[in-house]
Every structure is written in C-alpha cells, then in structure tokens.
Nucleic acid binder design. Structure first.
Lengths: 157, 157
DNA sequence: CCCATTTACTTGACAGCATGAAATATCGAG
DNA sequence: CTCGATATTTCATGCTGTCAAGTAAATGGG
C-alpha cells in the first residue's frame, strides 16, 4: 500500500490526532462565543454583526458577505439589533440604494464588553511561552496558507 | 505599566494574532463542515447526529448531551433523519423509558461518505512535516489543558 | 433623455434549530 | 403502592437561514 505522493496518508494517526484537536478547539470556541453573547442577551449572529458594526458603519451587503449568508437574512438581524437600540440604519450619501448599519453608542459599549468576555484562547494561551506562541502562530499561518506579512519592505500585492 | 502576573497582557499583540488565527480556523472549519453536509443533503446538526449514531445506537438523552442542547431538540433532528431512512428508533430492553436512535445501513453509508469529504485540516496539514505536526499537536494539547495520554499505563478516571 | 439592466435592500413564505413548559410513561426507593 | 426522579415527546415561540418577488436607485447604450 505505498503512499507515493507524500509522507502521510489521510489516515495517518498523527494527522488524525491534530484534526481531532482542532475539532475540540472549534467546539469549545463556539460554546464560549455563544455563552458570552448570551450573557449580553445576544444570539451568536447578533454578536457577530454587532462586532462588525463596532468597527464602523457597514453596508448591509458587506455584512452578508462577511457572514457568508444572504442579504435578506441580515435585514432581520439588524432589525433586532435596531429594535434594542444597539444599531441604527443610515443612508449612504454616495449611493442612495445602500443602507449603512452602524452601532449606536450603546451598541459600541455592548460590543466592547462582549470582546472583554471572549476569553477563549487567551486564557488557554497563557500557558504557553512567547516563543511557543510564535511557533504556534507560524504553524497555524502555514496551515491556513496565509502568507505571513513581512514586518517591513512588503513585496507589493 | 508593569504586568506583574505574567509576561503577557490580554492585549499582547502576539496573543491577539493567534486568537485571530484560531477564529479563522473556526470559521473555515464550520464552513467546510456545513458544505460537506449539504453535499449529502444534510444540515450541520443532522450530520453531527448521524456521525454519532454511526458509532452505535445512542439514547436520545446522550445525543442531547453530546450536542449540548435540550433533548426536545433532538427529537426533531432524529425525526428528520428517520423520515429519510437514515436512522431509526429502537426500544432499550433494559429501560423502557429510553429510545435508542440508531443509524440504518443507508445512514451508516452516508456517514461514511460524509467523513470522507471532511477534508478540512487534512489538506492544510499536508503542508507541515511530521515534526511540525507533532509540535502543533503538543501546543494545541497544552492550550486545551489536555493531559497528553501516555502511550500505556493510563491513570484511571 | 430614455429604457434596459444591474445592484442594494426589503418582504413574505417556509424549513430547521433551539429553548422552555407541560404531558406521558417508566423506573426505583421507601 | 406511592412518590419523586428520569426519558421522551409535544407544543408554542423566537432566531437563523434560504429563496423568490418586489421596490428603489444607479448605470450604460441608443
């Protein structure tokens, strides 16, 4: 049963172990995210949108792209945030078709507190030294196919 | 600005970078999971339950525990699997209150094919050497506070 | 300018997920 | 047997998500 293309088959035990670990991380991350959102009486989706809006007014369409869902879905989520005074809709002067969803002051505060309670992967990471975190970062970047951004003299594009 | 308790504050840039990467991994994992499920005309929840059932008949209550949701929710999910011939309910001879959800033959086949298309973190991991995967595994284990299981002579409980 | 097309958003219908409360059936202890 | 705990289901409700249809505004070719 030669594995001609590489040193590891898909059922390589080490790889499976890492896959399992990542599954665990994903599960725990979600769990904690929903929990943190619930603490502020938000659903996961609402928390994600509010997090986006706290970075600045955003067209509905862009929100849908970031959430990878249909724009019609965003309408409802922003409606619920709006009805709670956490977000508002503004008109884009540059294009009257678009509506910019923006966090209100209350919304920004909520988003801020939310961020503060998102301790996942901060707590756990505290157990690793700076060197280890660097190694972890580099491995994760390579896994994700991210080209690590050079500190300076970035090659264009 | 002394940070007396450790070498890194919660806003340490390196830590934030790793947190960000983990967020990316979580997002990608989910995306691919839902996609793989959809390929088999399943929702994410249905795929997760079917995956559980493919390992053996399971009481409804246990499914709820694994999914971290209310048992009443599981009823509907198993209903949908059952109406498609992927799962069935059996009575537990030992306790007539419990119903065991079990994958049918078709269900097991579907679960098998599903597993096969869950390529996330296998593809990406192919870019890492065995040594690197080992390092990654150890770091993730420590992050998760997992005591690495000894190869033998596991301490009980 | 005018019309067709495209783009941005909303609405409505519908399915699935998730919760909580209430009903049913069974178990197990006293 | 009776009481309390446990396992499941049903029902009502709300949120997320999709799709199809509709409105409004931008855009481009005649």
């Amino acid at each position: 049963m030669g594995n001609l293309r590489g040193m590891t088959s898909r059922t390589d035990p080490l790889t499976l172990e890492v896959v399992e670990l990542i599954g665990t991380i994903v599960a725990r991350y979600h769990e904690e995210y929903e929990e943190a959102a619930a603490k502020h009486a938000l659903t996961g989706a609402q928390a994600r949108v509010l997090g986006l809006l706290s970075r600045g007014p955003t067209p509905m369409r862009r929100i849908a792209q970031q959430l990878k869902c249909e724009p019609s879905n965003v309408t409802g989520i922003v409606d619920r945030l709006e009805s709670r005074g956490l977000a508002e809709r503004r008109l884009d002067p540059a294009d009257r078709r678009v509506k910019l969803a923006a966090a209100t002051e209350t919304g920004r505060e909520t988003a801020e507190r939310l961020r503060g309670s998102l301790d996942f992967a901060r707590e756990p990471l505290a157990g690793l030294s700076a060197d280890e975190r660097t190694v972890l970062r580099d491995l994760l970047q390579r896994m994700l196919g991210v080209t690590p951004q050079p500190e300076s003299s970035a090659p264009g594009h």
